[in-house]
Protein backbone atom coordinates (compact mmCIF):
# COMPACT_ATOMS: atom_id res chain seq x y z
CA UNK A 1 0.00 0.00 0.00
CA UNK A 2 1.55 3.29 -1.04
CA UNK A 3 1.68 6.39 1.09
CA UNK A 4 -1.15 8.89 0.51
CA UNK A 5 -0.32 11.90 -1.64
CA UNK A 6 -2.61 14.44 -0.03
CA UNK A 7 -3.87 15.70 3.31
CA UNK A 8 -7.51 15.78 2.28
CA UNK A 9 -8.80 13.71 5.22
CA UNK A 10 -7.33 16.24 7.68
CA UNK A 11 -8.80 19.21 5.81
CA UNK A 12 -12.15 17.49 5.75
CA UNK A 13 -12.14 16.36 9.41
CA UNK A 14 -11.42 19.93 10.54
CA UNK A 15 -14.18 21.12 8.20
CA UNK A 16 -16.63 18.56 9.59
CA UNK A 17 -15.80 19.44 13.20
CA UNK A 18 -16.09 23.17 12.56
CA UNK A 19 -19.31 22.79 10.64
CA UNK A 20 -20.89 20.66 13.33
CA UNK A 21 -19.91 23.03 16.14
CA UNK A 22 -21.10 26.06 14.18
CA UNK A 23 -24.39 24.32 13.43
CA UNK A 24 -24.91 23.45 17.09
CA UNK A 25 -23.98 26.71 18.83
CA UNK A 26 -23.52 29.62 16.46
CA UNK A 27 -27.13 30.88 16.20
CA UNK A 28 -27.45 30.89 20.00
CA UNK A 29 -24.06 32.55 20.44
CA UNK A 30 -25.00 35.28 17.96
CA UNK A 31 -28.28 36.08 19.69
CA UNK A 32 -26.82 36.05 23.18
CA UNK A 33 -23.49 37.77 22.59
CA UNK A 34 -24.42 40.31 19.93
CA UNK A 35 -28.01 41.15 20.85
CA UNK A 36 -29.16 40.08 24.32
CA UNK A 37 -26.00 40.94 26.24
CA UNK A 38 -25.10 44.31 24.61
CA UNK A 39 -28.67 45.58 25.01
CA UNK A 40 -28.89 44.47 28.63
CA UNK A 41 -31.73 42.02 28.01
CA UNK A 42 -30.17 39.26 30.12
CA UNK A 43 -28.25 41.50 32.49
CA UNK A 44 -25.30 43.85 32.48
CA UNK A 45 -22.54 43.36 29.96
CA UNK A 46 -20.07 44.82 32.43
CA UNK A 47 -21.09 42.34 35.13
CA UNK A 48 -20.72 39.59 32.55
CA UNK A 49 -17.15 40.67 32.04
CA UNK A 50 -16.45 40.79 35.79
CA UNK A 51 -17.79 37.26 36.19
CA UNK A 52 -16.15 35.50 33.26
CA UNK A 53 -12.89 37.32 32.69
CA UNK A 54 -11.04 35.28 35.38
CA UNK A 55 -12.00 32.20 33.39
CA UNK A 56 -10.54 33.76 30.27
CA UNK A 57 -7.26 34.29 32.11
CA UNK A 58 -6.97 30.51 32.39
CA UNK A 59 -4.63 29.31 29.67
CA UNK A 60 -6.28 25.96 29.08
CA UNK A 61 -9.77 27.43 28.90
CA UNK A 62 -8.64 30.12 26.49
CA UNK A 63 -6.85 27.56 24.34
CA UNK A 64 -10.04 25.53 24.04
CA UNK A 65 -12.05 28.65 23.14
CA UNK A 66 -9.56 29.62 20.44
CA UNK A 67 -9.49 26.04 19.13
CA UNK A 68 -13.28 26.05 18.76
CA UNK A 69 -13.23 29.40 16.92
CA UNK A 70 -10.32 28.19 14.77
CA UNK A 71 -12.14 25.09 13.68
CA UNK A 72 -15.32 27.05 12.86
CA UNK A 73 -13.32 29.49 10.74
CA UNK A 74 -11.50 26.58 9.08
CA UNK A 75 -14.84 25.15 8.03
CA UNK A 76 -15.77 28.44 6.31
CA UNK A 77 -12.42 28.69 4.50
CA UNK A 78 -12.65 25.08 3.31
CA UNK A 79 -16.19 25.62 2.06
CA UNK A 80 -15.23 28.89 0.39
CA UNK A 81 -12.50 27.15 -1.57
CA UNK A 82 -15.14 24.80 -2.98
CA UNK A 83 -17.54 27.71 -3.67
CA UNK A 84 -14.88 29.23 -5.91
CA UNK A 85 -14.36 25.84 -7.55
CA UNK A 86 -18.12 25.46 -8.08
CA UNK A 87 -18.27 28.89 -9.72
CA UNK A 88 -15.82 27.52 -12.29
CA UNK A 89 -13.09 29.82 -10.98
CA UNK A 90 -9.85 27.94 -11.44
CA UNK A 91 -8.42 27.41 -8.00
CA UNK A 92 -5.58 25.16 -7.05
CA UNK A 93 -3.40 24.30 -4.13
CA UNK A 94 -2.11 27.87 -3.73
CA UNK A 95 -5.59 29.27 -3.17
CA UNK A 96 -6.41 26.44 -0.78
CA UNK A 97 -3.28 27.02 1.26
CA UNK A 98 -3.83 30.81 1.24
CA UNK A 99 -7.32 30.32 2.68
CA UNK A 100 -6.09 27.91 5.35
CA UNK A 101 -3.15 30.22 6.13
CA UNK A 102 -5.60 33.07 6.72
CA UNK A 103 -7.44 30.89 9.24
CA UNK A 104 -4.21 29.93 10.97
CA UNK A 105 -3.11 33.58 11.17
CA UNK A 106 -6.46 34.58 12.68
CA UNK A 107 -6.26 31.73 15.16
CA UNK A 108 -2.72 32.60 16.19
CA UNK A 109 -3.62 36.29 16.49
CA UNK A 110 -6.60 35.50 18.71
CA UNK A 111 -4.44 33.27 20.88
CA UNK A 112 -1.57 35.73 21.22
CA UNK A 113 -3.67 38.88 21.58
CA UNK A 114 -5.77 37.41 24.35
CA UNK A 115 -3.11 35.44 26.17
Amino acid sequence: MSKPNNLKPIYWLLFAAGGMIAALVLPALIVVLSWLLPFGVVGSADTFYQTVSPLFQNGLFYLVVVAVLFVMLWHTAHRFYYVLHDLHIHVGIKTRYALYAFVIVCGVWTLVAGW
Binding site: M1, S2, P9, V91
Partner: peptide, 29 residues
Amino acid sequence: TKAQGAPYWLKSFFNSEGDSEAHSDKQGD
Protein backbone atom coordinates in the same frame (compact mmCIF):
# COMPACT_ATOMS: atom_id res chain seq x y z
CA THR B 1 -16.33 6.92 3.26
CA LYS B 2 -14.64 10.24 4.02
CA ALA B 3 -14.98 9.41 7.69
CA GLN B 4 -14.28 5.67 7.42
CA GLY B 5 -11.22 6.22 5.26
CA ALA B 6 -9.44 8.48 7.75
CA PRO B 7 -7.94 5.70 9.92
CA TYR B 8 -6.75 3.86 6.80
CA TRP B 9 -5.20 7.06 5.51
CA LEU B 10 -3.43 7.61 8.80
CA LYS B 11 -2.27 4.01 8.98
CA SER B 12 -0.83 4.12 5.48
CA PHE B 13 1.62 6.81 6.59
CA PHE B 14 3.27 4.21 8.77
CA ASN B 15 3.53 1.60 6.06
CA SER B 16 6.72 1.22 4.09
CA GLU B 17 6.83 2.56 0.55
CA GLY B 18 5.54 -0.58 -1.16
CA ASP B 19 3.71 -1.29 -4.36
CA SER B 20 2.26 1.68 -6.19
CA GLU B 21 -1.12 0.19 -7.01
CA ALA B 22 -2.76 3.40 -5.95
CA HIS B 23 -1.19 6.41 -7.56
CA SER B 24 -2.57 9.59 -8.93
CA ASP B 25 -2.10 10.39 -12.59
CA LYS B 26 -2.85 13.98 -11.85
CA GLN B 27 -0.66 15.52 -9.17
CA GLY B 28 -1.81 18.56 -7.32
CA ASP B 29 -5.15 19.84 -6.27
